[in-house]
Design a protein around this nucleic acid. Structure first.
Lengths: 233, 233
DNA sequence: TCTGAAATCAAACCCGGTACGAGTTTTTGT
DNA sequence: ACAAAAACTCGTACCGGGTTTGATTTCAGA
């Protein structure tokens, strides 16, 4: 029962986003003017801004949609937040690719990386995820602890994304990038779960790099250090 | 041998920053116009922008000056990066306060917190520190590992700062805020060093909050989990 | 004291974003 | 089927941050 009105709106919205991305891909984010976009999409500038609040939002549609908080909140009983997230990211890295056009993806990534304004706006979006994650974690841990955990987790995941996309933008094949991502996921969650101390080295590092396993999937949970953090003196 | 010219420049710069902050404190960041600032400081708008590249930079002078990378790079031999940073932050929290005007500090913090634009610009500054930290860590670990560690560390420290400042802005006394910061520092570095797993809990959390020790300083290094990350299968 | 470089200035301009009032289209109630 | 109300769009003028331009002042160094 989609009313005519809503159909038209959706259509216009699509046209705006598509037009914008076409221009961004051609000349880069900063070099394109919103008036230009509006003109090319045959709408008034004011109308454009009734669809998208900012120029950045034209380019960042769908960025930061992945919902960390939701994954953690909806995890099966008996799993730790970290496990839930690890599973999710493993699936993304090694699971089947659901129809992703590499060309498009790479072009989007390039545009975003090339524009400080856009990168920064993207970061701001991801920052909100972190806040929401902190909220759901706060239900189980102290507020401060939750904030810290959320910060660490979110920072790690953002780093994973950045690394992945940077490789893509640098020209790596999608499958290669995904393979390396799979390794990095294990590395990241290892660090998150067990901390940096196993890596710690006073003067010189113990090993240059922790040699990621061949097949990440085979890496199963190791016995956890049970020691509590800061036991009462 | 400070030439007259340079003295005047420095003077003007100071006058601009001071004027700006006076106005920001009175009416908030967004409500003050750069033209206004320029006028009040008796300079042309163009001149103002020859001193400060953006409006934000007028407000964020000195933010993000603390140099994580430097602390890590210049740490005494035999200490891990984490230890060096922990020591540094402990000192800040419990060491002597070197002439800080709480009034001024709080007003600055309030202004920054109240302006999304400003907060976000501050984040961007702190993000640069993180990049530099990653660079120095990359010398000892793999690039990806370094990026992940830097991300975790930097995210944690930013969270500490935010928490500290938020308490101040909420009206807490400086000494109280510092005491709680001291606790949080231990918590944060504990998490960083030993990971989140000791906290991990499947269905329900083991404890609500890990009860920070009374006197953080007495908390000395615990035996480290020696298990390496992802040993070859 | 003269000269050239550096700094300042006012004013016009660009761009992202908002405000406004008037016109047009869809919806809704009857 | 029709009129009133709501929703959407439009052009234009405006605001604020930031840049450009070109003329004018101010300092430094010989």
């Amino acid at each position: 029962m989609a009313g005519l009105r809503e159909r038209k709106k959706e259509q216009t919205r699509q046209r705006l986003a598509a037009t914008a991305w076409r221009l961004f891909a051609e000349r880069g984010f900063e070099a394109v003017t919103v008036s230009e976009i509006a003109e090319a999409a045959e709408v008034a500038k004011a109308t454009l801004f009734s669809y998208f609040p900012t120029k950045e939002s034209l380019a960042l549609q769908g960025v930061g949609d992945e919902d960390l908080a939701g994954i953690v909140a909806g995890r099966p009983a008996g799993t730790s937040p970290l496990d839930a997230l690890r599973t999710h990211y493993r699936d993304f890295a090694v699971g089947p690719m659901t129809g992703i056009d590499t060309e498009v993806l790479v072009s989007r990534v390039r545009v975003i990386f090339d524009s400080p304004a856009l990168s920064s706006a993207a970061h701001a979006l991801l920052y909100q995820q972190r806040q929401k994650l902190a909220e759901v974690l706060a239900a189980e841990h102290g507020e401060t602890a939750a904030a810290l955990m959320a910060a660490q987790i979110s920072a790690s995941l953002v780093t994973l994304q950045e690394t992945f996309f940077r490789r893509l933008a640098a020209g790596a094949a999608l499958e290669d990038a995904r393979r390396r991502l799979a390794e990095d996921v294990e590395l990241a969650f290892g660090l998150l779960a067990h901390g940096l101390d196993p890596f710690a080295s006073g003067g010189r590092p113990a090993r240059d790099e922790p040699a990621p396993a061949e097949d990440p999937i085979t890496t199963e949970d190791r016995p956890r250090p049970t020691g509590r953090l800061r036991p009462a003196a």
